[in-house]
Every structure is written in C-alpha cells, then in structure tokens.
Amino acid sequence: MTFALIGTKLGMTQVYDEDNNLVPVTIIQAGPCPVLQVKTSANDGYDSVQIGYNPKGKSPNKVTRPAKGHATKAGVEHQQKLQEFTIIGDSSEYEPGNVLTVEKFSDIETVDVIAVTKGRGFQGVVKRWNFKGGPASHGSMFHRRGGSYGLCQWPGRVFKNKKMPGHMGNKSRTTQNLKIVKIIPEKNIILLKGSVPGHKNSLVTVRVAKKIRKAS
C-alpha cells in the first residue's frame, strides 16, 4: 500500500510506551490533506494521487486564478502545498475532494519521513565529511584541512565527487522505517520514534515505509 501525507514537524519529546519504556518521539502534525486530482495511466501516463496541505491550517489569501480553478474543480479550498504520491495497483479508493487524515496510518507499523535538513552554511571537511583533521600541536601546521585533493600529471584533474568544503545541509533527506508510537486523529497528530530531518515547523512528507511496501 502506498500512501503519503504532508505535515509539519512540531518538535520532539518523550513518552512512555506500553512496556513502560521512555521513548524519544517526534511530533508531526500531518494533514488533513484533500485529494485534488487522481492521475491515471490512461489519462496522464502514470498512476498517482495529488494531495494538498495548508501549513497554517487555512487557505492562503493570495491565489493565482489557475491554481484556484484547479482546486475548485476538485471541490476543495486552495491549498498552499501540493504533492503527489504514486499508486501501485488499485486507485479507486481515491477521488478528488476526499480528505485524507492520519487515521489511514492506524494499521501501519513503520513510515518514512522526507524533509529538508537544517542548513549549516559553508562548512569544512571535518564537520561536513567527518574527516579527522591533523594534530592540534607539536608544530604540525595541519589542523582541519582535507589533505591531498588529487594525483599528478595523470589524470591532471581532481576526481568528481571529491569530498571538499562547501555548503552543508538544506537538502531533502529521507529517514526510513520510523516506528509509529501513537496516533491522535482528533488533532491530526502522529508520534514517531526517533528524529526526523528539518527544524521545528518545517514541512515534512510522511509516507508508508518503502521497505514494508516491498515485502507485502
């Protein structure tokens, strides 16, 4: 089963589970996400569902007319954020105008979370690639540098993907197989064990774990 929701990361805390263990959890407010469009392979070349999400809980004031028309066609309010998830198999359960909520995760154990990581700016190789750097003292004169970057006249260039200083973070990353600890449908809240990428109030996509999808 493929299924995804757009949500907001609210932060982290701890809760006790049934075995009285203190579990670190990330709180995510996911959905409600209305379906705006159902794409079919006959019509669009592939099967997917387009869902929307309003991070602040209400429709934005400024709407372009094409976007407004797209939403009204489905019979829903304009959504600030649109996303698609592909469907494998039967797509008949989704129809434009349906509202998807966290309750759909209730019989699922693990999910993946996709989000943009915290931006860390221009960083050196020690922080960015976990290089060890050199000795601090004894006149080594080699502290946090990356060492040699290449070879000699052959090949006469630096290889691609060489680990060097540069911009770190602010990239989309996926955390896989996060266990669902609790679902609170009244508040559209889902608690996941462990951490997810991004800062507080950042947009996240929660989807059914890819690895259980393959097994079934």
Partner: peptide
C-alpha cells in the same frame, strides 16, 4: 503553538 501541543501530549503521562 507547537509547544502547547507537546505539553498536552506529555501532560497525561505525568
């Protein structure tokens, strides 16, 4: 806003 939700979730376990 988010902090009040976190507090609410943990409050029942105190």
């Amino acid at each position: 806003m988010s902090d009040s939700i976190i507090e609410e979730i943990t409050k029942e376990q105190l």
